[in-house]
Computed example of a mutant assay.
Amino acid sequence: MANEIQQPKPFDLVGNPVLIGGIGSGFEAILQYRVHDGHDERTGHFTVGGGTGEHGQFHLSIDVSGAVFQLDRLFVEVFEESAADGSEINKVIVPVIFGPNIVPGYVGFRLHTVQRGDTLAKIAHDHYSDPRRFQDIVRANPLVISDPDRIFPGQALKIPIGA
């Protein structure tokens, strides 16, 4: 069994701290983590399993408040450093969407199921009192919305909410 990130799922909307959970095994029970956008990163290590091939559960809470992420999209990585040459092996990468870059004071999201007659401007007005904030909804839903002029009844949209 390879290392596995069970939380967050790909393209989940996450906040700060970034919560990471899964199952893993590493040389001498040590794994590394990295949360980054390609411009800034937070890294560290943690212990998991017994160090002699056992897999164990892990749950991390990574404070990224000092990071200057420029993008909405972050990558969460868990990997082992090779004892032979220090290279990154058994790496797992999960792309996520960073809510605090979309709305100030991000606290979570509401789910909105698109109804007949909905537009992104109408949904933004209903949730933010500002139809121009439809782009916040687009940014939070990259796998659901490919064209902001085309949403469909039944689609579940995450509406990021700030404090």
Rank of each mutant, 00 (worst) to 15 (best):
M1I: 14
M1F: 14
A2F: 15
E4Q: 15
I5M: 11
K9N: 13
P10S: 12
L13V: 11
V14K: 09
V14F: 12
G15H: 13
G15N: 11
P17T: 11
V18F: 10
V18P: 01
L19N: 11
I20Y: 13
I23P: 06
G24A: 13
G24V: 12
G24D: 12
G24C: 12
S25Y: 13
G26F: 09
G26K: 03
F27Q: 02
F27H: 08
E28S: 09
L31D: 00
Q32W: 13
Y33L: 04
R34T: 11
R34H: 08
H36S: 15
D37R: 04
D37G: 02
H39E: 06
H39S: 06
H39Q: 07
D40C: 01
E41W: 09
E41F: 11
T43H: 03
T43W: 01
F46P: 00
T47A: 10
G49C: 10
G50D: 14
G51D: 07
T52D: 13
G53H: 06
Q57F: 15
H59N: 14
H59S: 15
I62Y: 07
D63N: 12
V64H: 04
Q70T: 12
D72F: 08
R73E: 12
F75R: 15
V76T: 07
V78F: 10
F79L: 06
E81K: 14
E81V: 09
S82A: 07
A84K: 09
A84Q: 10
G86T: 11
S87L: 08
S87Y: 08
K91H: 05
I93M: 14
I93Q: 15
I93A: 14
P95C: 10
P95R: 10
I97D: 02
F98C: 01
F98T: 03
N101C: 05
I102V: 09
P104R: 13
G105N: 13
F109C: 06
L111S: 08
L111R: 07
H112P: 03
T113C: 00
Q115I: 02
L120E: 01
A121I: 01
H125G: 07
H127C: 03
Y128Q: 05
S129H: 14
S129V: 10
P131H: 10
R132E: 15
R133M: 12
R133Q: 13
R133C: 04
F134R: 03
F134K: 05
F134H: 08
F134A: 07
Q135F: 06
I137A: 02
V138P: 04
R139M: 09
A140M: 06
N141L: 01
P142D: 06
I145D: 02
S146Y: 05
D147Q: 04
P148R: 04
P148Y: 02
D149V: 00
I151Y: 01
L157K: 04
K158P: 05
I159K: 03
P160C: 03
I161D: 04
I161H: 05
A163P: 10
